[in-house]
Amino acid sequence: MADISPAPTEAGNPVIFARGVHKHYGAIHAVDGVDLDIRAGELFGLIGHNGAGKSTMFKMMLGLIPLTAGEIRIDGASVVGGDFRAVRRKVGYLPENIVLYDNLNGLETLQFFARLKGVSSADNPRLLERVGLAHAAKRRVREYSKGMRQRLGFAQALLGRPRILFLDEPTTGLDPEAIRGFYAILRELRDEGVTMVITSHILAEIQERVDRLSIMAAGKVQATGTVQALRERMNLPLRFELQLAPGAFDTVRATLADLPVSAIEARDGGLALRCGREAKMKVLAALSSLGDLVRDLTVREPSLEDVFFGFSD
């Protein structure tokens, strides 16, 4: 595993600590030697293909399934054994494809889980309001849409103001506006110092929002760091998109010929190319020397998807 994130800050002691975690089902190694250090107040992403081991890792962090080998500590305590109740009261969990009880209404659902968590139900109406379900508080879950169920599941995860949140594919079934609202709540929670681990297969959604992430493949963590650090480590080429003045194509192409650029292609009224990060400033200097021949310029970073496939393939 490559941890290329900056050195932990003083405020960032690991709240979630995993060392040498293995989970084997017979010959299948669902999780195969994972180390994780997730710091207090961090929004941490765990990404990977289906079957990469994310959900298994989640279940082990929650103490739902035993480890074949290794150690997991949440806020310094083991998730199994004598401390498990205290640990679980600090933790909120939103499972993938949450299933709630159809015969209960929104408020009753929260009341049931609040009792199990041993917290007051006084805040429940406010929680429903926070996730945008105040209007459906008295409606049975049977009548909820998929997105509403997901929001009720999120409210459930927030019961008792947990210090740590595990969110497994939390935006499944949400429309774009609800996704935006969801991440707004996550930002508020981060400001309150809540540590969050989130999985998502929508990489574009996660890349602008997480502080750091781990890429999992075949049961292993392939890389951990900020999105930017992972991009730099993968050293994927940047993409330049130019808008040119009429008739400038050949001149611009000739100028670029001596530079370490690749994949020059003509586009309507312009040109696109790729170059390594180290050549970025040289290319920019050369392009700006062309003056009015270049009308507009966009530099695109490789997407998290490009990075992801770089690490997981």
Partner: peptide, 8 residues
């Protein structure tokens, strides 16, 4: 899974 993630 959700039930078992509670302090129970």
């Amino acid at each position: 899974d959700l039930l078992l993630s509670m302090p129970i």
